[in-house]
Amino acid sequence: MSAAKNININLKIWRQKNAKAKGSMETYKLDNVSTASSFLEMLDQLNEELVNEKKEPVAFDHDCREGICGMCSLYINGRAHGPDTGTTTCQLHMRKFNDGDTIFIEPWRSKAFPVVKDLVVDRSSFDRIQQAGGFVSVNTSGNTIDANATPINKGDADKSFEAAACIGCGACVATCKNGSAMLFVGAKVSQYALLPQGKVEATERVLNMVRQMDEEGFGNCTNTGACEVECPKGISLENIARMNREYLSASLKG
């Protein structure tokens, strides 16, 4: 890897005081950004400068900064989580950019993810979908059975595990031209549908989660496949097809 160097960049960032305010793109110049820094560190650097100038820093979401929590978001240069595939914004590095570049930074855009402030959006619609059925009911009154005591087909276990890797970041919604949440819901439905523990509540689960998804105002999937490309966890479109099958069979039963 080539040695780190410093670059000067231009930033165009969405600024919006609060949920009700009308926002706009603002331009900033940021000098001496190390290519070894992460994208979020670059924003920290900008915020430090803004604070020194007694200006309001840019609000953006982040938590783990290691690609596992799903908090960081950001639509960077027209793509969810920026130019890399299979990564979150916290895993994106400034070495992906060149001296003199202009970088556009916008919040996730979806009716179901309203902007709270600047680049921060409210993703609680995902929580409500999850609460509608993304769980298994377990009797915890002292007679729980160890999950490993239930034999599970290796293929199903692997697929369930892959689906469970979803971190609920919302990049799939943000990147979808239809603002559809089907990759997220497909993953959450699949994760349980594939396991014996999840089969018990399978019918209500898929019906309730899809109903909640529709109520939140997400768009309708047209299988463009953009979500699969941008998903930091490599969640496959197979999960959407599985959800559709689950939904069809649940509709016939339910």
Partner: peptide, 9 residues
């Protein structure tokens, strides 16, 4: 309608 505000880029 699912994306009332569109992306600049």
């Amino acid at each position: 309608n699912a994306r009332p505000v569109s992306y600049v880029k």
